[in-house]
Write a protein that binds this DNA or RNA. Structure first.
Length: 821
RNA sequence: GCCCGGAUGGCGGAAUCGGCAGACGCGGAGGCCUCAAAAGCCUUUACUCGAGAGGGUGUGUGGGUUCAAGUCCCACUCCGGGCACCA
């Protein structure tokens, strides 16, 4: 595209100026009202892709807009620089992950600078920086001391082909390894956990007050999965002193218990299993525990209502409601790590139990009356209880209360709340992550590395080829140490932390990156938190956003973040994805349309305007054959702005209110539209409003000529409103028009004159039987009677009414009159 | 299966509180400028009947509420996303 100005020269000039003049650096003692704008810090994967560009375009618009609104805007940048891709690349090339990572960080930084996005680079935070590692480890040890970090044996995903432990994300839906294709196994290993479940209730409740997309909140609620019910005992039929403890949310269906099920991991399974059933039970347990949890719970032949695998233990327990003995089964549809790991089974009112009962020919008893026409199967709806003794006739809610009271009294029942949420497993058997600062001593046990010895850094000469354990475990000089407590030989922890731990507090460090000796100064951080606007991808709806919420609450509680808001992100915006041919545009799919090409061809401003204009920010963008044309259209819009702002030949003439006032109205109306559009994240209509302002100004100037002041007001307003969207061109044109004055980005955001935004004339629509038949110009303050008279007097309306009298006239002055005949 | 979104011209989308459907842009058509082209500018562009004035139809489908429905209610179809044995 041929442009009427030198795009590259202008964009480079302003990028240099913003960087070197520190225009968007902000200090912690800034007296202005504070605003914290934050884009999720990126994994450095090289030059920016269109998703980054979209993210940072939105973020930069907010930063520049809020700055013009007079606020001190915190706009930091950093890198989530630990992670597996760099480690894999290093293994492949026989190099070090740091080398890859830092090269890619430089590329990504270059991209965001070419975009014209502005940051306070002094506050740069990088996960693999020894300083950041030090405080990540400080926080880990503080969690340990507070009882929020603990060590326990847990099943992990083990890939025999890769001879390593995998993250859940690396295991495909069919239970195979994404790299080798081998079936992933479960292995029990000692792992570190964070006690996020201690915060389950608060994490759930605090969601209500957050200005987040409902969809994201719903996903988090779902993930936390709170359910209320009762725990009680099912006594062994052959030994009244022993019992299986079960959890249910449907105590009301207790008369329908026809069997019970324990998980394959259940501690009482061996005691329940009779000699006759032992081989069958052991076969089932072997099969269930060798599969990964993912394979066990989400393979294609599993799910509610589908076939179930199980085995009879040979034992019976007593239904506390009926006193009848019911058989105990072991089945893999009951999970060992939820509730009590055992259930009462009510096939009449539970789909899973029904499917199991079908397979093993167990009796089904209906305890809730079915609606008419209900066929075969489990009924989970409401209704009157039947076959249920003292519960008969009660609805589900009432029966639950009565049945709970019964269980409390007769079966050691306790009202209980269970959560789907599990504690956060943070150990990773990888090299490129933050080392866990722990030493294991034969005498002292688990010993924290003293704070003054932090950070614990991984040595550089580690062979990363995986041999089935953490790469650091093969490095004797790192692994073998002495106990900080007793001085005897000891062994270091060789696992690293999940990289989600790094992204759980980086935004706190941004607010005070200069403090030494502790992660941050709570007083400084409290002034900035919570983040006013957080912007990122929907893919982080659960994990990152839940972990970060947990971290902040925990840090406040253990005293590291005194006075900091317990919720980190007051407002969240999740942008749509960029898609090509229907699938997500990503490096791994190899279907990237590089932004660099557009920087070169039309410039950053045009690409930014495109991303703002193409559709609602929350929607996905389909990159099509037409997209290039739309980008050119955005460049054309900027060209027209340039021409209008620099055209000395525009016609001027003396003041003439009849022409000047209508244009001024458009200008002031546009101020209101753009302001409210930005506030409600409707950037596409904000750009449209500016296009309309441009069109109107050009047309007025061309067709009528406009007084110089009015033209100047229109153009200057356009530049100010455009400044957050197309910052380079706006700054350049402003400088040409106002040499020596402060930049357009230092100008206050324009405000509208109410006299010019209240309408002088309203167009009143007159309908006959709901169809528009006339439009009349009326005073905006016209009353209903006058509006009605005016409408009925209109000749066109009279012909439509004909001879008859209107049966009804609906008047909504000054907008509309509807005549019914 | 459950939960959450969504469906508007040839295309992306607009319509913020139930009151003019289609803002703005892309694409198309015609024109101006030019030796010619590019660029730029102007006009036009939901569908349909009509020479025109003007009329009719129209927001996934079928019902409903209302003077009035893209917008509210009920039922359904299709598309996208999330969760999926959590008792």
């Amino acid at each position: 595209m041929v442009r009427p100005f030198d795009v590259q020269a202008i964009e480079t000039k302003w990028q240099d100026r913003w960087l070197h003049e520190g225009t968007y650096e902000v200090d912690n003692d800034d007296p202005r009202e504070r605003y914290y704008a934050l884009c999720m810090y990126p994994y450095p994967s090289g030059a920016a892709h269109q998703g980054h560009i979209r993210n940072y375009t939105f973020g930069d618009l907010i930063v520049r807009y809020q700055t013009m609104r007079g606020k001190a805007v915190l706009s930091p940048f950093g890198f989530d620089s630990f992670g597996l891709p760099a480690e894999n690349a290093a293994i492949k090339a026989g190099s070090h992950p740091r080398i890859f990572t830092e090269a890619r960080m430089a590329e990504l930084r270059r991209s965001v600078e070419r975009l014209g996005a502005v940051y306070d680079w002094r506050r740069l935070v990088v996960s693999h920086d020894p300083d950041y590692i030090k405080y990540s480890q400080t926080i880990f040890l503080a969690f340990l001391e507070a009882g929020l970090a603990y060590r326990a044996e847990a099943p992990v995903n083990w890939c025999p082909g890769c001879a390593t432990v995998l993250a859940n994300e690396q295991v495909l839906a069919d239970g195979t390894c994404e790299r080798s294709g081998d079936l992933v196994q479960r292995r029990n290993l000692e792992q570190w956990f964070f006690r996020i479940t201690a915060y389950a209730d608060e994490l759930l409740h605090d969601l209500d007050a957050l200005a987040w997309p409902e969809r994201v909140k719903a996903m988090q609620r779902n993930w936390i999965g709170r359910s209320e019910g009762v725990e009680f005992d099912l006594t062994f039929a052959h030994d009244a002193n022993r019992a299986i403890r079960v959890f249910t949310t449907r105590p009301d269906t207790g008369y329908g218990i026809t069997y019970a099920v324990v998980a394959p991991e259940h501690p009482l399974l061996a005691a329940l299993t009779t000699d006759a059933q032992r081989s069958e039970v052991e076969a089932l347990v072997e099969r269930a525990t060798s599969a990964s949890e993912i394979e066990r719970t989400s393979s294609s032949d599993s799910g509610p209502g589908l076939s179930k695998r199980g085995a009879f233990t040979g034992s019976y327990v007593v239904n506390p409601f009926t006193g009848d003995p019911v058989p105990v089964y072991v089945a893999d549809y009951v999970l060992g790590n939820y509730g009590t790991g055992a259930i009462m089974a009510v096939p009449g009112e539970d789909e899973r139990d029904f499917a199991f009962a079908r397979t093993y020919q167990l009796p089904v008893v209906a305890t809730v009356e079915r609606p008419p026409g209900f066929g075969d199967g489990a009924y989970v709806g409401d209704g009157a209880h039947i076959n249920s003794g003292f519960l008969d006739g009660l609805g589900v809610a009432d029966a639950k209360k009565a049945a709970s009271a019964f269980l409390v009294e007769r079966a050691h029942g306790v009202a209980t709340v269970n959560y789907r949420l599990r504690d956060w497993l943070v150990s990773r058997q990888r090299f490129w992550g933050c080392p866990i600062p722990i030493v294991y001593c034969d005498h002292c046990g688990i010993v924290a590395v003293p704070l003054d010895e932090l950070p614990v850094l991984a040595p550089d000469d580690v062979i990363m080829e995986s041999s089935g354990q953490s790469p650091l475990a093969t490095h004797a000089a790192f692994r073998d140490t002495t106990c900080p407590r007793c001085g005897e030989p000891a062994r270091r922890e060789t696992d690293t932390m999940d990289t989600f731990t790094d992204s759980s507090w980086y935004f706190l460090r941004y607010a005070d990156p200069f403090t030494d000796g502790r992660p941050f100064d709570p007083e400084q951080v409290a002034k900035w938190m919570p983040v006013d606007q957080y912007i990122g991808g929907i893919e982080h709806a659960i994990l990152h956003l839940l972990y970060a919420r947990f971290y902040v609450k925990a840090l406040v509680d253990i005293g590291l973040a005194d006075g900091v808001n317990r919720e980190p992100f007051a407002r969240l915006f999740t942008q749509g994805m960029i898609r090509l041919d229907g699938s997500k545009m990503s490096k791994s799919k190899g279907n990237l349309i590089s932004p660099e090409r557009y920087f070169d061809r039309v410039g950053a401003d045009a690409l930014r305007v495109f991303h703002l204009f193409v559709g609602p920010p929350a929607d996905n963008v389909d990159w099509t054959d037409q997209t290039e044309d739309v980008i050119d259209g955005c460049a054309r819009f900027l060209d027209r702005v340039h021409r209008l702002a620099t055209d000395a030949a525009l016609v001027h003439r003396p003041d003439d209110p009849s022409v000047d006032v209508p244009l001024r109205r458009v200008v002031h109306h546009t101020i209101d539209r753009v302001t409210s559009d930005i506030d409600r994240w409707s950037f596409n209509t904000a750009v449209a409003a500016l296009m309309e302002l441009l069109n109107a100004t050009a047309k007025w100037a061309r067709e009528y000529g406009v007084a110089r002041e009015v033209l100047n007001e229109a153009i200057d307003t356009l530049l100010k409103l455009l400044a957050p969207m197309a910052p380079h061109l706006s700054a350049e044109l402003w400088e040409i028009r106002h040499p020596g004055e402060p930049s357009v980005h230092a100008q206050p955001w324009p405000t509208s004159d109410p006299h010019l935004t209240t309408e002088q004339l309203a167009v009143m629509v007159v309908q006959v039987n709901g169809k528009v038949r006339a439009r009349l110009e009326v005073s905006p303050t016209i009353d209903d009677d006058d509006a009605r008279d005016l409408a009925l007097a209109d000749p066109t309306i009279r012909t439509w009414i004909g001879d008859g009298e209107p049966t009804r006239v609906v008047v909504r002055a000054p907008r509309l009159v509807n005549v019914i005949v």
